[in-house]
Amino acid sequence: MEYLLELENVSKKYKRFQLQQVSFRIKPGNITGFVGINGSGKSTTIKIIADLIRKDSGTVKFFGTDRRKQCFNEQIGYVMDSSYFYEKQTLGAVKNIISSTYQNWSENEYRHYMELFELEEKQKIKELSKGMKMKYALTLALSHNARLLIMDEPTSGLDPLVRKQTMEVLKEFIADGTRSVLFSTHITSDLEKAANNILFIHGGKIIFDEAMENIPALQEKMLGKKYISLEDSMLNFIEHMKQGEIL
């Protein structure tokens, strides 16, 4: 099987934090929820995948090949946690810059999402709310026929309606079974509605990488506690790790 994304023993050391031997794979047709508390290493991992920060060791492969080739970005859409856009520009001006960088840019897809998210090309980025900025970032990420969508905390601070709409779009995106989403968040309720797979990181280490339906059994087996919700499960695992019951 061709994995859309593979990380193997990826490490990055900072003064007060270390990403330790992070390994996981993303199969086609999946929404993978990348969960963990603040400072657990989600953003660092995503920024390494995006090549925004350099890893110390390990490999990152896209579509079975060692990344380094910028052309892979043609098939990857990114939605990052903060707005990286030029705030004084209009949505149309930013789109003109971004769309020219992609060979597979689809104007139809772009128009579809602009309409769906009720965005106007004449608006300036600085006039958009946080939710609208995320919708615009998602529009750009979905308009060049990407096979893999990588999102770093896109729904934090957004209202339930926008979050619901986002999850609907993601489900639609992976529907044909060839595309996937890696979605980092600490709002686990969003993932319970849409994710097929959960990747749990804590203290810079991957604690588990499991299919959503296996998590209740995993929790009962490892912690001996009944599964209530993904958030409760995440907190239980952290509590047990603090007590040194899980390494």
Binding site: N73, I76, F85
Partner: peptide, 18 residues
């Protein structure tokens, strides 16, 4: 000033631009 403030260059490296 613009690049420092908005980190647009970082965003561009997420596109096929190297």
């Amino acid at each position: 000033l613009i690049e420092d403030k908005y980190k647009g260059t970082a965003y561009l490296t997420l596109t096929p631009i190297s």
